[in-house]
Design a protein around this nucleic acid. Sequence first.
DNA 1: TCCTTTTGGTTCGATGACTAGACCAAATGA
DNA 2: TCATTTGGTCTAGTCATCGAACCAAAAGGA
Lengths: 170, 170
Amino acid sequence: MALGTDYPRQDCGVARALELVGERWTLLVLRDCFLGVRRFSDFQAHLDISRGVLAQRLDALVSSGLLVRVGNGHPSYVLTDAGLGLWPVLHSLARWGDEQTTGGRLRRTWHHAGCGELARDGRCRSCGETPGPADVETRPGPAADPGLRDDPVSQALRLPRRLLEPLPLR
Amino acid sequence: MALGTDYPRQDCGVARALELVGERWTLLVLRDCFLGVRRFSDFQAHLDISRGVLAQRLDALVSSGLLVRVGNGHPSYVLTDAGLGLWPVLHSLARWGDEQTTGGRLRRTWHHAGCGELARDGRCRSCGETPGPADVETRPGPAADPGLRDDPVSQALRLPRRLLEPLPLR
DNA sequence: TCCTTTTGGTTCGATGACTAGACCAAATGA
DNA sequence: TCATTTGGTCTAGTCATCGAACCAAAAGGA
């Protein structure tokens, strides 16, 4: 890997993970994948990321096997099993970020679909299971700021959504 | 925050979290804090990080309230409650990084002290509890590479260690 | 079919971040 | 008291990221 992106002499899973997902924007691209974003222009509209960096991040995620490029023409980018394994990381990171900056109120809530809300450790408060991302539903939470963005992706995310399902755009 | 480090127009806990801990090296500094590293020179010896960036990261972590500087002379850097809240993130990230790069064998294992090994979701396989970091013990795992480093911190981490306790150095 | 628009990029120059290495003052230890 | 360690700062060079312009292929409409 290129200088400035790897940690070659660290014997630790955190360092190996950060070589795959530690660059600027990468975890936000993957978060969007969980939310149902799949196409280049939708990532761009939702993230305000420069096109060059977005192209480089998508390429890197595909070549490291976290995303697959689906379709010949204008492709979709879809999480692989390796990418799906990041769900616990992204869920705990989202919760911690909200806790630090809103005093515990969430910008977005996470639910075991048809059951109960998820606790901090990812378990359903109602049934005690730890659902995978395909069984999780998300909704805007009490600390959401609807005035911050108005792109089509943000609009679609104002309704309850099942994770991983493509957003109803275009 | 400086340009290139924040995500000002993202209404999401992940973005807020990454503004606090998303810069290069920051999560590895915090990982070292959980492992018991507390002093500037020990971070430097263990991380091979440039001194300027290490100083900037420690300053930033102190001013965002994730670390406190303890002592007048040569200070120690110790996790606050806010910093301790990152334990689930770092544990799941370490596991995922190992899974991606060693085929599931761990570079380091995590145990509920005096009880059982931790599962991927942080629960003790033996008693079912989810211990906080103060009750977790860590040991080199089957995928550890003892030839990679030979600094004093790495040597101290070859024995079982309780998280958060200062390493027996100097 | 042709024409237009959208999409998915690439390329460019400017700016900001990270690097290794030199340097230094205060704290510590003998 | 003196030498060494520690915890930094500073600098010049390299690398990454930025916004903007540009472009070809794909998709959609007449």
